[in-house]
Design a protein around this nucleic acid. Structure first.
Lengths: 211, 211
DNA sequence: GAGATTAACGGAACTTCCTCCACTTACTGT
DNA sequence: ACAGTAAGTGGAGGAAGTTCCGTTAATCTC
């Protein structure tokens, strides 16, 4: 479990293209995906994330449990899929939206805006994100979205600070934005503004002197 | 579950003193704690962390499952307890050991040494740490050790960079040292040396100009 | 030492995640 | 149309974490 080869995500989340699967989904499969997502969304809206059990979802969607698993892999995958829409919006925003998040602004400003956006994302749907990131050891990283965020940061870091280990630093900057970290800080009474300021402070040091 | 009051740890880990519990443990309880820890350690050594099921532990220790839970709270708590010895060594080292980890060196050097030590800790027992940090949403933070590490970093950061938001920055510096993050980086082929260099780079920015 | 008190014990029962596989169905080429 | 086949389905069953609560036995008090 700790040393298995890295698997690509099975769900339809934005991210690395899923290789090996047929490009077109069979009609009944697509229908069931929708039914499952609707059921899951309804449950979350009604009973909260804690009520999101796989059996419950299957029952409400009128499919077997096996189908839920075939479509979404596991509970984390289902949670990720529920976050998919917002994730797409976010990705569109930083890939092709207006500055400072999108192209046009200075790299440092874009990084800052990006980190803030990630924070807001956690703030918006903390519980779902916790589930998405927590179940199964490396769910946070294999979810697909992580790779996209990481790549984006690497690009910006290389612009802002040529010669740095952008690959590592991207991980390091994303780490404090893990849902469980932020929800815990909030629990402890730390305000959202303070978290953002703290991120700025962290980033400032990294990008001040470009050697 | 997401908004419960923060609970103090129940196990005997170094950290905040456990309030509310009688200072002396009943003889049979202490005996059972030992039996359970021995059994758990044996299982981990034999079958790896994956073999560490609560039922298995109870059986091998010759106690009921309920007893295991009473003593250690949950699986994460048991894992933490297994890490306790090394954790004590680490804490002794940075609280009162020789520099650069212990007192005597410059704050920045101590922070650096501390982060490296935390990294080595993950490197030494990655699987156990992943279990300890991953089960139950905020296990990483409520484990007791986190609070100690955080406090230590706050102290050093305040010395190295007066006026900074040490509280937040401590969280941010600890975040990339989460076991799941590091194990994933290793899985991806990132070397331990590179991770340490990256941490140095991150820290360097933070501590360069003291305003 | 006897009785009261209260922590500790044990394991059945419950929950939920996930796997497995025998069966069914949508698509494909002829 | 139709047979072949690969994808999809469903739900019983296994595994593991956790809770609950009636029972047991340390420890304390007198």
């Amino acid at each position: 479990m700790a040393s298995e080869p890295v698997e690509l995500p099975v769900n339809g989340l934005v991210g690395l293209p899923v290789v090996g699967l047929p490009p077109t989904e069979r009609a009944d499969a697509a229908r069931n995906r929708r039914k499952i997502l609707d059921a899951a969304a309804h449950i979350v809206a009604t009973a909260g994330v804690d009520g999101l059990s796989m059996e419950e979802v299957a029952q409400r969607a009128g499919v077997g449990i096996g189908t839920v698993y075939r479509r979404f892999g596991d509970r984390a995958g289902l949670a990720y899929a529920l976050l998919d829409e917002r994730e797409r919006e976010l990705q569109t925003a930083f890939l092709s939206g207006p500055p400072p998040l999108g192209p046009g602004a200075e790299p440092v400003e874009r990084i800052k805006a990006f980190l803030h956006a990630l924070h807001d994302r956690v703030e918006a749907q903390p519980d779902l994100l916790v589930v998405a990131e927590m179940n199964s050891t490396h769910a946070r990283f294999t979810g697909g979205a992580y790779a996209v965020h990481h790549t984006h940061l690497v690009t910006l870091l290389n612009q802002a600070r040529p010669g740095c280990d952008a690959h590592y630093l991207a991980d390091a900057l994303l780490a404090p934005l893990a849902a469980s970290t932020i929800t815990y800080q909030r629990l402890r009474g730390m305000s959202a503004e303070r978290i953002k300021s703290g991120l700025d402070e962290l980033l400032e040091g990294l990008t001040r002197t470009s050697t």
